[in-house]
Amino acid sequence: MPEQDPLRARFAAYRGDLTDRIDGPGPDAARRTLRRRRRATVATGALAVTLVVAPIAAVAALRDAAPPGPPAATPTAGPTWSPSPEPSPDASRSPSAPTAPDGRITGRQLRAVALDLPAWAGRSCADTTRVTLLPAATTEVDRPYLISVTHGDVDADGATETLALLGCRIGEASAKQVVAFDRDAAGRIVTLGRVARTHEKGDGGFEDVRAVAVAGGKVRIQVADIQPCCSIPAYWARQQWRTYGWDGERFTQTAGPTTWGRDSRLTDLAISAGPLVLEPADQLGRRRGTVTVTVTNRGSVDADRVAFHELERVGTPDGGDWDRCESARGRSDWPPCLTDGVPAGERRSWTFRFRVEPEGPGADVSARVVHHSADHRYWPDLAPGDNQIDLRVDG
Results as ranks from 00 to 15, higher is better:
297 N>T: 04
120 W>S: 05
354 F>W: 12
346 E>C: 01
240 Q>C: 03
375 D>V: 11
118 P>L: 06
372 H>N: 07
352 F>G: 02
71 P>V: 01
23 D>C: 07
251 F>I: 03
325 C>K: 09
139 T>K: 04
235 Y>V: 05
47 L>R: 12
323 D>P: 00
361 P>Y: 09
142 D>H: 05
145 Y>W: 04
261 G>W: 07
57 A>L: 00
33 T>A: 13
49 V>C: 06
61 A>E: 12
390 D>S: 09
60 A>V: 00
351 T>L: 00
279 E>I: 00
305 R>H: 15
373 S>I: 00
59 V>I: 09
328 A>D: 11
195 V>D: 08
260 W>M: 04
158 G>M: 05
142 D>F: 08
222 Q>S: 10
385 G>L: 12
240 Q>M: 11
381 D>F: 03
185 A>D: 15
48 A>I: 08
374 A>W: 02
114 A>V: 00
356 V>I: 15
226 I>S: 01
254 T>V: 14
58 A>F: 11
154 V>R: 05
316 T>F: 12
292 T>K: 12
148 S>M: 09
237 A>Q: 13
258 T>V: 06
326 E>Q: 14
249 E>Y: 06
156 A>N: 09
393 V>F: 02
292 T>L: 08
152 G>N: 14
148 S>D: 15
118 P>S: 11
196 A>N: 11
38 R>A: 14
191 T>Y: 02
26 G>W: 02
187 G>T: 04
296 T>C: 01
202 G>T: 04
234 A>R: 14
135 P>I: 01
135 P>L: 02
273 A>G: 04
368 R>I: 02
77 A>G: 14
2 P>M: 13
214 V>K: 03
2 P>E: 14
80 T>H: 05
191 T>E: 15
339 T>H: 02
21 R>S: 09
229 C>D: 07
43 A>T: 05
109 Q>K: 11
85 P>Q: 03
128 T>F: 00
341 G>K: 08
